Computed example of a mutant assay.
Amino acid sequence: MARRCFFTGKGPMVGNNVSHANNKNKKRALPNLRSIRIKLEDGTSVKIKVAASALRTMKKKS
């Protein structure tokens, strides 16, 4: 499964590590994903990947 948040769509970001000598190396910044289990109306549960920032927002709003 892709490293992508189910709600916000956050995914990996790319950039450069830049040294003091201005050498550039590619780097990937992965999102802080957590697996959570959500209960649906029919009683079944589904596991989804959610970013930690989205979890904080969901807790704040509920």
Rank of each mutant, 00 (worst) to 15 (best):
A2E: 12
A2C: 07
A2Q: 11
R3F: 10
R4A: 05
R4S: 08
C5K: 00
F6A: 07
F7M: 06
T8Q: 02
G9Q: 06
K10G: 04
K10R: 11
G11C: 12
G11A: 09
P12V: 07
M13K: 10
M13V: 05
V14W: 03
V14N: 09
V14A: 02
N16T: 01
N17Q: 13
A21H: 06
A21K: 06
A21D: 14
N22A: 10
N22V: 08
N23C: 07
N25A: 14
K26C: 04
K26P: 07
K27H: 08
R28A: 11
A29I: 15
A29W: 15
L30W: 13
P31Y: 02
N32V: 10
L33E: 04
L33T: 02
L33V: 07
L33H: 08
R34D: 13
R34V: 12
R34L: 10
R37M: 06
I38Q: 04
I38S: 05
K39E: 13
K39M: 12
K39W: 05
L40Y: 02
L40W: 02
E41M: 02
G43R: 01
S45V: 04
V46P: 04
K47W: 08
K47L: 12
I48L: 08
K49D: 15
A51R: 06
A52N: 15
S53R: 10
A54K: 03
L55R: 01
L55Q: 02
R56D: 07
M58Y: 06
K59Q: 08
K59M: 09
K61G: 02
K61E: 14
S62P: 00
S62F: 09
